[in-house]
């Protein structure tokens, strides 16, 4: 019963985060959905990843969304579509069928012949090189974000056709006055 309620919470919160107009509310629904996913992972027995998911998905990511939305002002998204809804529904249905048809082959996989150590052994020794690459990736991400945010301090001017024609008129008037 607890697991069923968790799955229902995940589905409802993700739907609300997609459907709501206000971006702040969308971030809060996403945080609730991530918390439910973390609890579901814990119920499945994946305790370590549940803790990581709870701290990152419910702690860090919503704070980032709220920070970005507050920098842009309180925006609300207009409910418009870029792809027609029947096409989107049919593509999502095809993907769901593909996942469901691939499950029996996944379950019938035979267990591995070799034994695998604990989570920390797998993470820090078997996949040590990948962990180093992830640390490099984190530093690259931080540096790129700092570059992006520091570039935004310079005033950016978008010149449209009206702006350029106005600039041209001003220049012509200035030349006329100079003559």
């Amino acid at each position: 019963m607890f697991v069923i309620s968790l799955v229902l919470t995940i589905v409802v919160c993700t739907l609300l985060s997609i459907r709501t107009k206000h971006l702040l509310f969308a971030a809060l629904w996403l945080a609730t959905s991530n918390a439910a996913v973390a609890a579901f992972l814990y119920a499945l027995g994946a305790h370590e990843i549940a803790v990581i998911e709870l701290s990152v998905g419910t702690g860090l990511v919503p704070v980032l969304f709220v920070f970005a939305v507050s920098m842009m002002g309180h925006l609300s998204s207009v409910p418009t579509t870029s792809v027609s809804r029947p096409l989107a529904y049919s593509l999502v249905g095809i993907c769901a069928l593909l996942i469901l048809f691939s499950v029996p082959s996944l379950v019938s996989t035979s267990p591995p012949a070799f034994t695998i150590g604990s989570f920390s052994h797998v993470l820090w020794e078997d996949r040590g090189l990948e962990m180093l690459l992830q640390i490099v990736l984190i530093f690259a991400g931080v540096i790129s974000i700092l570059n992006l945010l520091s570039a935004s301090r310079r005033p950016a001017v978008v010149r449209t056709r009206e702006d350029t024609s106005a600039v041209g008129d001003d220049q012509r008037e200035f030349q006329r006055e100079a003559v």
Partner: peptide, 21 residues
């Protein structure tokens, strides 16, 4: 839950036009 999450995510990526969404 996997089917629901991936389905809703794909639907949102196809339908929504707001970058944050």
């Amino acid at each position: 839950a996997v089917v629901a999450l991936i389905g809703i995510g794909l639907y949102g990526l196809m339908v929504l036009r707001n970058l944050v969404k």
